[in-house]
């Protein structure tokens, strides 16, 4: 059991799409360990995605949210919250819904507290005017590891605990979402946006569109988009893909040449009431906003396996192709890659 303390700031910044277009975002920035007298220097440095929050069942987690304000929108005095989406048996104080508890005003802090009990893939996001704040970028991935998780022992390097058939060699999270540039522009210009007119032009994995999804090296244009999604593995390895849909649309994700073994959904091992193993294979994963799906792939042959949206019209960057919600899965001969040092990337 560990006492985990993290601190996130709510602020704004800009992101870049592969066509060079720049888009205003709201988001979170990691303030963990940042001295109090330096946190204001993190204003305007939000990232899309927000930092990966990685915890373990049994941990005590204190998450401090600090509202840093929006340098680009000094007029805006919106509060913010953290909603751990899917946390079981939550109490309203830490649920992050302004209408049912507390929101954090500009310049203030609030501590959310969690003792995760169920492993799996979750998400967190701001729940203040969520249609605006989620679309604007206040979204992050959240992994809860089983209590017996031990990456040094293959039997205990699992998504849902030893003996659940969820062992993996490598893991990646893929948070998918969309971007409507008109909405972002209107918010930046302090204009109203009619959310019933929502119409995205970019489709993102981990805050980036293809081919930026492939860029593993630090990239100046992508300074506020820290997570690539190039998936790399050795032949014969089990690769856990944690899909998170924090867009507003349903999506159909597929990998040419690799079936998807679906082992968990919504941070629940796929099991019936009496332990029936409901894991199953699909070629196309179709899922909606606010859902997570845990998938294990087991590529046997070295190759490049494209991952893309089977709604082919979405594999575009504002009309240019290829683009959008695509990435590569590069599989090398067995033994080529060293063990993955940590989760994700």
């Amino acid at each position: 059991m560990t006492f985990v303390q993290v601190r996130y700031g709510a602020t704004d910044s800009f992101i870049t799409m592969p066509d060079g277009s720049v888009h205003y975002i709201f988001g979170f920035v990691d303030l963990t360990g940042v001295p109090e007298n330096e946190i204001f220097a993190r204003r305007g440095k939000a990232t899309l995605l927000a930092p990966l929050l990685e915890v373990r069942v049994g941990d005590r987690v204190e998450l401090t949210l600090t509202n840093l304000g929006m340098p680009q929108r000094p007029d805006l005095d919106d509060s913010h919250t953290i909603h751990w989406h899917g946390f079981p048996n939550q109490i309203s104080l830490w649920d992050g819904v302004p209408e049912t508890s507390i929101a954090v005003p500009v310049g203030r802090d609030f501590i959310y507290y969690y003792e995760p009990k169920d492993p799996g893939t979750y998400m967190y996001h701001c729940h203040f005017e969520p249609v605006e704040h989620i679309q604007m970028g206040m979204v992050g991935p959240l992994i809860a590891r089983p209590a017996d998780y031990n990456p040094a022992n293959p039997l205990f390097k699992t998504a849902y605990g030893a003996g659940t058939g969820t062992e993996f060699d490598r893991e990646y999270f893929l948070l998918i979402s969309e971007l409507d540039p008109v909405a972002h522009e209107q918010v930046h210009r302090v204009q109203e946006f009619d959310w019933s007119e929502y119409r995205p032009a970019y489709w993102l994995i981990n805050g980036r569109a293809y081919p930026d999804t492939l860029h593993t090296a630090p990239d100046g244009d992508l300074s506020q988009q820290p997570y690539h999604s190039l998936i790399q593995a050795n032949a014969g390895e089990k690769v856990l893909l944690r899909f998170i849909n924090l867009g507003f649309e349903e999506h159909a994700i597929t990998i040419l040449g690799l079936p998807l073994r679906i082992i968990g959904r919504d941070a629940q091992l796929l099991r019936g009431l009496h332990g029936e193993d409901l894991s199953h294979w699909r070629d196309v994963l179709y899922f909606g906003a606010g859902q997570t799906v845990d998938v294990i792939i087991e590529p046997q042959q070295p190759a490049l396996y494209p991952l893309f949206n089977r709604g082919y019209h979405k594999n575009t960057n504002a009309g240019a192709t290829p683009g959008g919600m695509m990435t590569h899965i590069t599989v090398y001969p067995a033994g080529t890659l060293p063990p993955q040092p940590g989760p994700g990337f």
Binding site: Y210, L214, T254, L256, L258, Q301, A303, L304
Partner: peptide
Amino acid sequence: PGQEIAPEPVLDASGR
């Protein structure tokens, strides 16, 4: 799709 054969995608010079 669904046939488990390794794909043979074609890339351009920039890897796209």
